[in-house]
């Protein structure tokens, strides 16, 4: 217990001062607008060396906090057009800086492919998907899930089969880790099939089966079935795709 005098020793003017100060502080705070990260407030990011300097030797911690800060910009829960006022070039620059600070972090690419690329604005979608593609190329074995998602979005939302093929080809070509599931690496085959490039698809499935990289029985059976189906279609003169 602290050695204190009773409350009665506190003079009235001091009590009044304390009460007035508290009331004023609460009133001022209540009158001030609630802090919100508005889109125009998003400034261009500083250079990576400066951010490293600001991180005081903790670039990963800085990257995490920057990511949490970035995602709050212009987000309105339930908004029909999320991020509509956001400058995507700046968002991209921030995401790139955050990845430079913490190359092992997956959050920026998750945000790019699942938040910023899923807006109802094709130009923005394309720019964000391209960002995911460029970042994937820097570390394919770790960042493949985001390009796989980008391929899915390109094919089904943008309906740009050429671009989807470019992404899927990159997935097939550059992802070399053994723990990558076969579905990610075989996306190119199915897109080629959709594009009626049956001969290429046939060669690719054949090559994949012959390489011995597919070991799962179910996957082997599935690919074998697709190979037969493509060969059948080729025999029939590369006609319509069977359902």
């Amino acid at each position: 217990m602290r050695d204190e005098r009773p409350l009665s020793h506190v003079s009235r003017p001091v009590l009044a001062l304390l009460a007035a100060g508290l009331a004023l502080q609460i009133a001022l705070h209540a009158a001030a607008p609630q802090p919100r990260a508005k889109a125009p407030d998003l400034m261009p990011p500083p250079a990576t060396p400066l951010l490293r300097l600001a991180g005081l030797g903790e670039p990963i911690a800085l990257a995490k906090i920057l990511m949490l800060q970035l995602q709050a910009f212009d987000y309105r829960s339930g908004s029909k057009i999320p991020y509509k006022d956001l400058d995507y070039a700046r968002v991209e620059a921030w995401l790139a800086r955050i990845l430079e600070l913490d190359p092992g972090g997956q959050y920026p690419l998750l945000a790019a492919s699942r938040l910023y690329a899923e807006v109802p604005d094709e130009a923005r979608q394309r720019s964000m998907l391209d960002f995911v593609y460029r970042q994937y190329l820097l570390d394919p074995n770790r960042r493949w899930p985001w390009l796989a998602h980008a391929t899915f979005l390109t094919k089904h939302r943008l309906k740009d089969m050429g671009l989807a093929l470019k992404y899927a080809s990159a997935l097939q070509k550059y992802t070399t880790a053994k723990d990558v599931p076969a579905w990610a690496k075989t996306m190119e085959i199915f897109i080629r099939e959709d594009l009626n490039e049956l001969e290429t698809a046939r060669v690719m499935i054949g090559g994949l089966l012959a390489s011995g990289r597919i070991t799962d029985r179910g996957e082997l059976k599935f690919l074998d079935g697709r190979l037969r189906e493509i060969e059948e279609r080729l025999k029939q003169g590369a006609g319509k795709k069977k359902r």
Partner: peptide
């Protein structure tokens, strides 16, 4: 406002010390 609040709090504490 905050200076008033802090002065009030510090004086409150000092007068009870």
């Amino acid at each position: 406002a905050y200076a008033l609040l802090l002065c009030g709090a510090a004086l409150f504490d000092l007068q009870r010390k």
